[in-house]
Design a protein around this nucleic acid. Structure first.
Lengths: 243, 243
DNA sequence: TATACATACATGTATATACTTTTCCCGCGT
DNA sequence: ACGCGGGAAAAGTATATACATGTATGTATA
């Protein structure tokens, strides 16, 4: 009668899934205490150490906050993305339990401007792929994604259907990223951006300029515009290596 | 005779420190196997479960790689994101060859709001230090810096002259940062921010929300507002570690 | 010689048990 | 009304034990 599924994964993982699921469905309200370890033991029929491990790992992953002598609480929502993965906006949206949809505005082969060619560190002017995609979270546009892609690394970029596969996923699968550069700034929306993102001209947007390398070769140059009022970027990490 | 120190921290932490120290001093060469769990048990006089926990946590922190049936190995060094240094705006400005100046608007001891207290993960409401500083680049304000500081870690924060020493430098010198959280968003300037930064109300600003930890304790919570048109944040690094 | 099996050893998981530390709260006494 | 003390409850740690699972290796057998 245990509430846990009969899969092959370890018990403590099942307990973690059980807890995450119940947090996701709102079974435990955001500000009330979760069941105690002993209550989980009684409810799930596993040992307290196993429950403890599940709760400990969820805590260190940032989902829970635990206070000795008090109890276990749901942590305030976290923008948990590391900067390296912020490009996978589709996964982020889905991870938050929302619906993701994308709309391809442009997908073409172009001859770059001199400046763009310089971004790619090209010695001679060479053709590039160019895509513009709008990403929606629950039918609300949150990100305008413009990418330039090096055809020598990703030859079939312009033949993909990016309303089905996210550009990020396709690129990740096609070529390894060995280095990343980010430049983040805040800019007012211009007329075209405003139209695509359904916001007013001049609204605050987060502009993320991103270059990725595969070895010594620039693979992609992206301009990601996030609606300031609907999105923020987060990262958390430990610079732990010793004194 | 145990090789572990006689401090107050939990045993598994001592074991972790012991292992990290020996990695750091090169006692175990980079590509050979570390002692097995049972060898640690014999050497340190603790139970295998405690050794196992220490090894497991070091593995998930990226220091070690473990293969079931084989052994434990030292992981290749992990990438350090450069976002850690973006806070040192004074150094950045000087590095660009410009003149840096700061103006202290507020430096006080306060009782935090409930929300702020939660950011510090305080069980009970406790006093905090609060500072507001404007940073200038060549007499042009570029950043409004609001900080909340945990007095239990930095007791004399409110007695410093932050027009001479940058808050960042002071904090770095006072307490080690073991973990950092960043949330970046784009927001329009409110009236007060606009006044301090000499920009129009509603101008785009980059808002960097930052929390730092010293061990398990939240050391500082900061709200850094950059003038969008005058500043951007950059980082570049190479990913290499998996998961 | 080459394959299959047995075995030893490594990490991984699960449990029962005991004790510690911290917090909350109730009831008692002043 | 106030404070204090003690107990209950909750998370945190540590251990012994058992079994599971994956890997390497050596030996017996075809």
């Amino acid at each position: 009668m245990s509430a846990l599924p009969d899969t092959a994964s370890p018990l403590y993982e099942k307990v973690k899934d059980y807890i995450l699921t119940n947090i996701g469905t709102g079974k435990w309200s955001k500000d009330r205490k979760l069941p105690s370890e002993n209550e989980f033991v009684a409810a799930l029929g596993v040992s307290r150490m196993t429950v403890h491990r599940a709760l400990r790992e969820l805590t260190s992953a940032g989902f829970l906050i635990r206070l000795q002598g008090v109890g276990t609480f749901i942590a305030p929502p976290k923008p948990q993305s590391t900067l390296i993965e912020i490009n996978n906006i589709a996964a982020e949206i889905v991870a938050r339990g929302n619906r993701h949809r994308s709309e391809v505005l442009v997908l073409e082969r172009i001859t770059p401007t001199k400046e763009l060619s310089l971004s790619f560190e090209f010695a001679r002017r060479a053709a590039l792929y160019h895509s513009v995609v709008v990403n929606f979270e629950n039918d609300l546009p949150v990100q305008l994604e413009e990418r330039f892609v090096n055809p020598s690394l990703i030859p079939d970029y312009d033949k993909q259907d990016f309303s089905k596969t996210a550009t990020y996923d396709y690129l990740m699968q096609k070529t390894p990223v060995t280095e990343v550069e980010h430049i983040i700034s805040a800019v007012p929306a211009d007329a075209e951006t405003a139209r695509h993102l359904a916001i007013d001209i001049g609204s605050c947007c987060l502009l993320l300029h991103r270059r990725t390398w595969t070895g010594a070769v620039v693979a992609t140059v992206s301009r990601l515009t996030y609606v300031g009022s609907r999105y923020s970027l987060g990262s958390r990490y430990s610079p732990s290596r010793k004194t």
